[in-house]
Nucleic acid binder design. Sequence first.
DNA 1: AAAAACTTGACTATTTTAGTCGGGTATATA
DNA 2: TATATACCCGACTAAAATAGTCAAGTTTTT
Lengths: 140, 140
Amino acid sequence: MKLNTKSRYAVMALADMAVFSRNNAVSLRDISLRQGISLLYLEQIFLRLKKNNIVKSVRGINGGYILVKSPKELKISDILLALDQKVKTIGCKKDSKKSCNGKSTKCITHNFWDELDIHINSFFENKKLSDLLKNRETRI
Amino acid sequence: MKLNTKSRYAVMALADMAVFSRNNAVSLRDISLRQGISLLYLEQIFLRLKKNNIVKSVRGINGGYILVKSPKELKISDILLALDQKVKTIGCKKDSKKSCNGKSTKCITHNFWDELDIHINSFFENKKLSDLLKNRETRI
DNA sequence: AAAAACTTGACTATTTTAGTCGGGTATATA
DNA sequence: TATATACCCGACTAAAATAGTCAAGTTTTT
């Protein structure tokens, strides 16, 4: 059970922006250098962040990306959602009539996984990007 | 971010045992039929559960498996641990001197992922197998 | 004009997952 | 004591997901 690197890098990159943006756009090149993340990979990630209105872009020289919301308002859940990283612990199909393992009734563990989902997602809902920056021991 | 089927099936199978065991061993064949899980896959899962002392086995005719602890005492975290399913959300290496992305300092998001780990693991620590059986709408 | 930086879809090697397969061994019961 | 049932266990594999890279742009500032 683990978060994928795309999600981790997204949170990392946005935290980097929160720290280094001084009302100016932050280029992916700079984030790449500071955080040690492949530039090409960052491009792919920011494409999705932009589509989901987490960041907006400024093209051309001195361009880069800008956070749409302030770090205080940006929920971690918003970031994960942008990368399709819903916490989906259960394998039981929710959409179809048949619910779990092809049976017509909910499986014995169904409610448990639902609870887990709620537990984890509420964690991400309640965390803001700014929370990551508090008590930072090291400067990136 | 999802739990793998091995873990889900393990919890499911053990919950099944908790319901259907009447002080007798429960065969994998029965669990397989009731829960719709491949018998061969169950064998693989129970091998690990046995190695980790979650269940004990009874061989031969009328054999099967028995829960070592009562459902009230069996923590879900014990089950997941038996299947190597520690919640390991971070990719940052914990063991080496260099911690995150090959850098010598912790990455900006490091503490956040640690918090997440604690949040999720405490959920599994505090849940007992018997908790899954409460308020069950359907009989398997 | 040229350089910096974003845009986008397609592609790919590697790893993980979700199982299956085959050949065992132990034991209760007829 | 034969045999069916059920556990035991390592090895294997097809398919999916992951973690990127690549190519070929477009836009804007200087």
